[in-house]
Every structure is written in C-alpha cells, then in structure tokens.
Design a protein around this nucleic acid. Structure first.
Lengths: 211, 211
DNA sequence: ATGCTTGGATAGTGACACTGTCCGATGAAG
DNA sequence: CTTCATCGGACAGTGTCACTATCCAAGCAT
C-alpha cells in the first residue's frame, strides 16, 4: 500500500508517518519507483505499536526508537531483549548523593528488595532506571513526611510481583519469540495506564464507600 | 524567610519559585516592604508538594494549579475534595465514536466495572478522566490484537481495589481534614511511579526466574 | 499533454517548563 | 550618610518535544 493508505488505515497523518520514518521508528517502504514506496501489513502493525507506545504509553519518541531497536537486535538473547522495554524509561538523571531523604529512600528500597527476595539487577552500584525512579519517588514522599518505609512499600511490592506473573503469562501465550518480545514491550507499557486508571477509579470507589 | 532561603531549603531555584508564584501554584509571601516578602514553613511545605507533583508525578503545571485550588476550596465537601486529584489527570480528549476498537474497549470496561461492583461515577454518559483513559488504553491493546477483555482486566481491577484500601488507610491516618486532602493528592500521585517502578522490576525478576 | 498525487527535505509551530536579564528599591556595613 | 550587594518583580528568551506546513521534482492516471 501507499503512504496515504497506510495513513488512512492507521489513523495517523502522512506528515506524522513521514516524521516517524525520519526518526527511524518505522522501516522505509520498498521503493517501487523514484517517488513511490510500497508498505505492507507489518508496517501497519508496527505503526500502530509505535503510536500506542507514544500516545497511550507516553513514551518519548527517542525512547520508542531505542525500544524498537533493542527488540529487533538479533545479537541479544531472549531474556535481554525482554528487558529492553524496561531500560528505556525516562531515566530522570542521577540521584543526589548528599540528600538525607534520598539516603533514607535508598535504605527503605534496599530492605524492601531483600524482603521480597529480589536480586538488585546488573550489579551492586549499577541501578536500573526503574530502581532509580523508585528511589526518587520514595525520597519525594519522605521529604513530604509521608510514611514510606519498607512496611508501607511491601504490599505494593507483593502486588507488583503478582502482576508480573499475570503479565509474563500473557507474554508466554505468544507463539513466536518475536511475538513475545513485541508483547513484552506492548503489555509492559500499555498496561501501565490501565493499572493507574483502575487505581484512581478504585480510590473514588473506596472513598465513596467510606464517606 | 526570604525567597532566597526558601530556594535553598527546598532545592528549587529562585527563578523557578518566582515562576510558580506567577502561575499561582504558591501563595505570595507576606509583603514586609516594597521589595521584600516573608515566607513561612507552610510555603516551604507547599513548594515541596508542588515540586514532587510536577517532577516525580509528572503532573503538568496547569493541572497542579487546579489540584491545589480544589484542595483549598472550602466550598466543596470532604469527599469531593478528595477526588480533586483524580479529576486533574491529563484528560486525553474525546473518544472516537466510530472506532470499533473503542467500542470493544467500552464494552469490556463496562463489564469489568459491573463484575467489580463499581458504580460508574458522576452519571451514565459522563465518564471521569480515569475512565476515559482506561477505555483509550484498552482500545489501543485491542487494536494491537492483545487479549484485553474483562477476564484479563479483572485481576488488575482486584489489585487496584486492594491498593485503594491501603491508600485510603494511609490517608485516614492524617489527623486533620486539610492533612487528609493533601495526603490524598500526594499519595495518589506519588505512589504511581512507585507502583510502576516496582512492576517493571518485578517483570525483570520474574523474567529472570523463567528463562 | 496535463494536472493531481507521491515521497522526501526543510523549516516552522505551539505547548511546556523553566531561565536570564534588567530594574528600582532596600537593607546592611562601614 | 554613603556605598553596595541583595531583594522581589516583570518580561523576554531558551531548549525540548512532537508534530505540521510548505515546497519541490518526479511520476501516474486521463
């Protein structure tokens, strides 16, 4: 199909598709003449994924490119590629070293991981982006004086562990390795707004129940 | 304290504090002369809250202002003000009416809410922003062909309900109504990155366990 | 032959969250 | 009383991000 048809079928404007092509989020189509290119069903599928990641998941364009690239990198093994989505989070810079709130947060999170029996990841001092973001968030809560020690965090951690089982089950339903990678990316990112929306709705529900 | 001290104690630059003052996120200080103003502990606390909402929670400045305003609006009752945080989500525009994916999503979500026994909110057709975002997200998953019907959603919903209980317990620990409102805002927004980070870490953990 | 469409290149847009610079007034030091 | 750094306020400027508008020459359809 032509660019215009790709645009119509995906609901994404041609200008935006061209932008994604420029940014390397989409493979260029098969050139059929000097001024025309042919796109296939896989382009459409990929475009829909990219769109969902960016619009629904709120993933920055640059991160989306990295995720896609990692998912396609044949040199990595399955497990590493499954983790590719995780590593492309907005990484939020380095942690302040001298901030007491950050120190408290670091200790709470460390104790939490121990209680949950989670290994910390790559190395002792090399924290993944999710780990750093967790510490940052806990530090902000500590700074505001809210209870956020291991005791408070533990139920969240256990719930996260439950979610991970459900999520990985869904990933394993995919027959092909490539499908599993794509599912891991899509389900990791796109269930996030689902979870947050449900939590907010549950808040409203529970609040109405109590008052 | 002076603006400079407020800046030093909060770690926010004076330029940014002035910006927040302009935007109405912070009350102006008590004018002590034509060119000087005095700020108190409550300004510091509020500044830290605003900073956390914006930096950690990713709340847009305009939404943060609305949240703060609603939290301070004495004319609303307790329950309504508790919901103020929820209503200031990035609202993501109207849903496409003719999209079959959106229709499917709407039905799945409706069935989910019924199964969970949640009342839909304000009215029959007036969906809250969280509700709309949920439908949008589910629609994106449907469009990509991932399983996202009521069966898949139900465990997420139940988990969200559990979270709401924990969260509201934390809110109710606050002694004053004003403290409860602030806690509701802060905990709703700031536990979101905590939850998402933990989920991603749990994914990595579970994935390592399986492969 | 003609006129509309296509894909590519490049520059521009608007929202967002600050940030830099200037200013006159003021408070503090000598 | 003078000097001089500092203060708060106003306003324009910056960098980023995700597009979007315009232009162009080369085709394709009629």
């Amino acid at each position: 199909m032509r660019l215009a048809e790709l645009s119509e079928r995906s609901g994404v404007s041609t200008a935006t598709i061209k932008y994604y092509l420029r940014e390397g989020l989409l493979q260029p189509g098969r050139r059929v003449s000097a001024t025309q290119a042919e796109y296939g069903e896989d382009h459409l599928r990929r475009l829909r994924l990219v769109r969902a990641l960016i619009q629904i998941g709120g993933v920055p364009v640059a991160s989306a490119r990295e995720v896609i690239a990692a998912a396609e990198d044949e040199s990595l093994d399955h497990h590493l590629r499954l983790g590719a989505a995780t590593r492309a989070l907005p990484s939020a810079g380095a942690l302040a070293e001298d901030d007491p709130a950050v120190e408290t947060a670091r200790r709470s999170v460390g104790a939490l991981l121990e209680r949950l029996g989670w290994s910390c990841g790559p190395g002792p001092d090399v924290l993944g982006p999710a780990h750093r973001r967790l510490i940052d968030s806990v530090a902000a809560l500590v700074r505001l004086g809210y209870p956020c020690d291991t005791e408070q965090l533990l139920p969240y951690g256990r719930l996260a562990a439950q979610l991970a089982v459900t999520d990985l089950d869904m990933v394993e339903e995919q027959p092909t390795p490539a499908g599993q990678i794509e599912a891991a990316v899509a389900l990791t990112v796109l269930y996030e707004p689902v979870l947050l929306s449900l939590r907010r709705m549950a808040h409203a529900q529970e609040s109405a129940r109590r008052f």
